[in-house]
Simulated scan of single mutants.
Amino acid sequence: MNISKIIAAGALATSLAVAQEDAWPADEQTDASTSSATEAEEAEPAEEAAEQSNEAAEPQSETTAQTASEPAPAASEQADTRTAYDSSDNAYAENTASAPQKTNTLNSKMGVGAHIDFNYSFLNGLAQDWNMGDETDAPAGFGFDAGIRGRIPMVDYLQFVPELNFHFAALTQSDEAAERVFKQMDLEIPLTMRATVLDMLYIAAGVQLTLNLSSKVTFEEEDIDMGGGLGTTSMEFNEKIEQAGFTFGLLFGAGFFIMERLSIDAAFMLGLSDMYPDCESDLIESMDGGKQMTFKVGVGYWFM
Score class of each variant (00 low, 15 high):
216 K>Y: 03
226 M>P: 04
64 T>G: 13
65 A>K: 13
66 Q>P: 06
92 Y>M: 11
248 F>K: 01
43 A>V: 03
110 M>Y: 09
51 E>D: 10
3 I>P: 10
122 F>E: 07
36 S>M: 10
77 E>Q: 15
40 A>G: 13
207 V>F: 05
96 T>C: 14
113 G>I: 01
127 A>M: 04
38 T>H: 14
239 E>C: 01
172 T>C: 03
275 M>T: 15
17 A>I: 05
69 S>L: 15
64 T>S: 15
78 Q>L: 13
77 E>P: 01
28 E>V: 15
264 I>Q: 02
242 E>S: 14
190 P>N: 04
124 N>P: 02
123 L>N: 01
115 H>Q: 06
26 A>H: 15
50 A>R: 11
141 G>P: 02
139 P>L: 03
132 M>K: 12
159 Q>W: 05
208 Q>K: 13
31 D>R: 14
154 M>F: 12
124 N>Q: 11
20 Q>H: 10
294 T>N: 03
90 N>T: 14
22 D>L: 14
277 P>A: 02
253 G>V: 00
71 P>F: 15
118 F>N: 05
202 Y>H: 09
39 E>C: 12
25 P>F: 07
26 A>K: 12
291 K>Q: 08
95 N>I: 10
26 A>W: 12
175 D>K: 04
272 L>M: 10
77 E>R: 10
27 D>A: 15
142 F>D: 00
285 E>V: 09
229 G>W: 01
15 S>N: 12
69 S>C: 06
185 M>N: 14
101 Q>A: 09
277 P>M: 00
89 D>K: 13
21 E>F: 13
277 P>H: 01
233 T>C: 07
21 E>V: 13
46 A>Y: 07
106 L>V: 02
233 T>S: 12
56 A>H: 07
132 M>I: 15
282 D>V: 08
151 R>W: 03
204 A>K: 07
163 E>S: 07
216 K>A: 10
167 H>F: 03
273 S>K: 06
77 E>D: 09
291 K>M: 09
280 E>C: 00
129 D>Y: 03
76 S>E: 11
296 K>Q: 08
175 D>N: 08
53 S>Y: 13
137 D>P: 00
115 H>M: 06
150 G>F: 04
145 D>M: 06
84 A>W: 11
281 S>Q: 02
281 S>T: 01
68 A>S: 12
249 G>S: 00
119 N>K: 01
280 E>W: 00
22 D>C: 11
13 A>E: 10
11 A>N: 15
202 Y>D: 06
47 E>D: 07
17 A>H: 09
170 A>P: 04
258 I>E: 00
24 W>L: 15
160 F>A: 04
204 A>H: 04
192 T>V: 15
93 A>Q: 09
77 E>M: 09
155 V>G: 02
107 N>E: 11
225 D>K: 01
37 A>Y: 12
230 L>E: 14
292 Q>W: 01
116 I>N: 00
35 S>R: 11
34 T>A: 12
119 N>S: 05
189 I>T: 05
56 A>Y: 10
61 S>Q: 13
44 E>C: 03
219 F>E: 06
243 Q>E: 10
201 L>C: 07
222 E>S: 14
145 D>P: 00
80 D>P: 00
40 A>Y: 09
67 T>P: 05
119 N>V: 13
294 T>G: 01
226 M>I: 07
153 P>C: 01
269 M>E: 09
17 A>D: 06
284 I>Y: 03
206 G>S: 02
81 T>V: 12
247 T>S: 06
203 I>H: 03
265 D>S: 05
